[in-house]
Design a protein around this nucleic acid. Structure first.
Length: 284
DNA sequence: ACAGACCCCTGGTCGC
DNA sequence: TGCGACCAGGGGTCTG
C-alpha cells in the first residue's frame, strides 16, 4: 500500500493494536523479507524477543516501531506488503513472510508480501528517526514540512516535475498514483521542467498534493484489489475518486477529452492531453 | 546533480 | 487450456 494514505492508514491501525504489547516470538518465514537486516534472521528474532513496542511512527512510506530497548523495527511495504493483525488460529496466508506473536492472548502481527519488495529490519536508533531512513524527506502532511524550502529546492532542480514529486528525498509519501492525481489537478504535464515553474505554480501543486493525499487518507486509501488492505484486512475506497490514474481511454472529468497513458521512468503516467499538454520544450 | 538502466519478486490478465 | 508477453501503486545501487 505503497503511498502515504495507505501507509498512514496502516500506521493508525497498527498503533491501536500493538502499542504497549510485548513481543514473544518472531518467526521469519522468508529470508528476503528481512534482507535489509544484515545480521540475519536469528539475530532479528533474538533482538526482538521480550521487547515492548512503544509507538508506531511513519516517515514517508516507511514505518518504524520504537521499542523499549532503544531499537526500532523498520517496515516498508514495497509494492505488495501488508501488515495484518490475525488471531493465532487464523490460517497462514500464502505469502506470509514474518510472524510476530505477543506475550498476551491478543492477535499476532503478520507481514505478508507477495512480491517481496517490502521488508522488515531492526534499527539501533529507535529513539530518534532511524538513520536507515534519515534520507527520507518529511511528507506534506507533516506539521514540520517546510513549504518554502520545498518550493525553493524543487525550483533549484533541473528535472521533470513528476520525477521530483517521486523523489522521496525532496518530498515523501507521494507515489505514482497521487503524483498523477496532483498533476491532473494542477493541470501540469509531468514532463514540465521544475526550474521553469513559477513559485506560485509550485505552491499550487503542493496544495493539490496535500489535498489529494488528505482526501485519500479520509477514504482509507486507494485499493484496486485485496492486495491493498489495512491491518484489519479492509480496503479503502479512494479509487472511486481518481481523476487520472488508470483512466486511459476514458473522458477527462474536467474537459471530456480522452485521457492518455505514457511511459515514464518505466511506469505508466496518466494525463489529459488537453488540460495537461506536453511541454513544448523537452528538458535539456 | 541527475538520468537511466537494472535489480529485487509473484501473479493476474490478455491475446493468440 | 496453455503459453508468452505485459502489467502492477516500491526503492536501492551503479554507471555515465
Amino acid at each position: 500500500m505503497p503511498e502515504l494514505p495507505e501507509v498512514e492508514t496502516v500506521r493508525q491501525g497498527l498503533a491501536k493494536w500493538v502499542t504497549g504489547r510485548r513481543i514473544d516470538t518472531v518467526e521469519v518465514r522468508h529470508p528476503r523479507a528481512i534482507r535489509r537486516h544484515l545480521p540475519g534472521d536469528v539475530h532479528f528474532a533474538a533482538v526482538l524477543k521480550g521487547r515492548t513496542i512503544l509507538d508506531v511512527a511513519r516517515r514517508g512510506k516507511y514505518l518504524w516501531l520504537p521499542l523499549d530497548s532503544g531499537d526500532a523495527i523498520i517496515a516498508h511495504l514495497g509494492m505488495s506488503g501488508q501488515l495484518l493483525m490475525q488471531p493465532a488460529g487464523a490460517e497462514d496466508e500464502t505469502h506470509l513472510r514474518v510472524r510476530i506473536t505477543f506475550d498476551d492472548a491478543g492477535p499476532q502481527l503478520r507481514f505478508v508480501d507477495q512480491r517481496t519488495f517490502g521488508g522488515l529490519s531492526v534499527s539501533e536508533d529507535g529513539a530518534e528517526l532511524p538513520r536507515e531512513i534519515a534520507h527520507i524527506a518529511r511528507d506534506p502532511m507533516d506539521p514540520l514540512f517546510d513549504d518554502e524550502l520545498f518550493v525553493a529546492s524543487l525550483r533549484r532542480r533541473h528535472t521533470e516535475i513528476k520525477r521530483a514529486l517521486l523523489d522521496q528525498t525532496l518530498i515523501s509519501g507521494v507515489g505514482n498514483i497521487y503524483a498523477d492525481e496532483a498533476l491532473w489537478r494542477s493541470q501540469l504535464h509531468g514532463a514540465r521542467a521544475t526550474d521553469a515553474l513559477t513559485r506560485p505554480a509550485v505552491r499550487r501543486l503542493l496544495a493539490h498534493v496535500r489535498d489529494v493525499l488528505g482526501e485519500a487518507l479520509v477514504a482509507g486509501g486507494t485499493s484496486f484489489d485485496a492486495l491493498y488492505v489495512n491491518v484489519d484486512g479492509e480496503s479503502g475506497y479512494f479509487d472511486r475518486a481518481l481523476n487520472a490514474y488508470g483512466r486511459e481511454g476514458q473522458p477527462c472529468h474536467r474537459c471530456g477529452t480522452i485521457m492518455r497513458r505514457e511511459q515514464f521512468m518505466n511506469r505508466s503516467s496518466y494525463s489529459c492531453p488537453r488540460c495537461q499538454p506536453r511541454p513544448r520544450q523537452p528538458l535539456r
